[in-house]
């Protein structure tokens, strides 16, 4: 990933990063020294319920920011909104967000991705009936062969195709998927699909990657390697924003944590400070803050049922919206 040279000195050094963020106020909506993403006044209503109501948020360039919050806090909806997959109810009424200086208020999902902000999905969208390699090659930007005028004439895109394939092989190798390249994506395990989706997103050479619950449904062995990959992306100079509910993960790899509850941002700060925050404990940890939330086994039945319900709900919403 040598193209990612937006890296400023010190991104690979934890101390330097901490130093950089140490001056930042630990309040919701605080200003960052070098924000890559700014969000203002985004609201989204579903019926009478306010699902997302974010007044101001800045995401610092070149670090890992975690977006956490209890289920139903509106994290995924917020993701959908800023990546153009959903439209804020407040659109045209003061909603404004910008990525790398470019306004995204009216930008479609594909243009957001083209601008360099690429996302993955909570329910992995591996293209099941295509091979792993085809999945990867779809990710590459600016392919001449994707224009209808050139498509029929192979010599016009053969060279580029070779380069894209080479790049895809490198990335697959990095994510330990190279032997699977001719398999259908549908035959991969859940964790492998997550990896594939992440690798595919990287094919677009993004400057910021947004991961929606990258660890959900991944076995513990693979979780470690996923975390490693995320960190190495950051060390390459990429900005990472990810949604997660597992506290351990957040604690270990994130440089900055944003907490959402009931659609609002309730706290910001480094992982350890945020977790001690009273507002966070009230909103997010609730009655369970005595226990270790990183351990799923401790979730009682009620919480498990609630989780299940939310997953079902999101799945259904997705089915209703996108599938056909």
């Amino acid at each position: 990933m040598s193209e990612q040279t937006t890296a400023t000195a010190g991104h690979a050094d934890p101390a330097a990063r901490r130093q950089m963020m140490s001056q930042v106020d630990r309040i919701p909506g605080s200003a960052k020294p070098d924000p890559i993403l700014r969000v203002d006044h985004i609201q989204r209503r579903f019926g009478g319920m306010m699902a997302v109501d974010v007044e101001h948020l800045e995401v610092q360039r070149g670090i890992i920011t975690a977006l956490i919050g209890p289920n139903g806090a509106g994290k995924t909806t917020f993701f959908n909104l800023i990546t153009g997959f959903d439209r804020p109810t407040s659109a045209g009424k003061g909603a404004h967000w910008a990525f790398d200086g470019a306004t995204l208020d009216k930008t479609s999902a594909s243009s957001v991705a083209k601008a360099g902000m690429v996302r993955t999905f909570q329910l992995t969208k591996a293209l099941s009936r295509m091979t792993v390699m085809d999945n990867m090659m779809l990710g590459a930007k600016d392919q001449g062969g994707e224009s209808l005028a050139k498509a029929m004439f192979r010599p016009l895109w053969r060279q580029q195709e070779r380069e894209v394939r080479h790049k895809a092989e490198e990335l697959l190798d990095r994510f330990k998927l190279l032997e699977k390249r001719d398999d259908y994506a549908g035959s991969l395990s859940g964790g492998q699909r997550k990896l594939l989706e992440m690798a595919r997103a990287l094919m677009t050479d993004p400057s910021m990657i947004m991961l929606d619950e990258p660890m959900a449904g991944v076995n513990p062995a693979l979780t470690q390697s996923l975390l490693g990959h995320i960190q190495s992306l950051r060390d390459d100079g990429m900005t990472v924003l990810f949604v997660e509910h597992d506290m351990h993960v957040v604690q270990h790899i994130s440089d900055w944590v944003v907490v959402m509850a009931e659609g609002r941002i309730v706290a910001e700060g480094p992982a350890d400070t945020v977790m001690a925050d009273k507002a966070v404990i009230d909103a997010y940890l609730g009655a369970h803050h005595e226990t270790d939330l990183g351990d799923d086994a401790l979730l009682d039945e009620g919480v498990a049922a609630a989780l299940e319900l939310e997953v079902a709900e999101e799945e259904a919403a997705r089915n209703q919206e996108g599938e056909r």
Binding site: T83, F85, S108, A109, S110, S111, V112, A113, K114, V118, R119, T120, F121, K125, A126, L127, S128, R129, M130, D134, L138, G139, K141, E197, R200, A201, M203, T204, G322
Partner: peptide, 14 residues
Amino acid sequence: RGIREDEDAIRSLG
């Protein structure tokens, strides 16, 4: 074929 499989995925790739 990508669009046939999942439009949103293709959209997310720009």
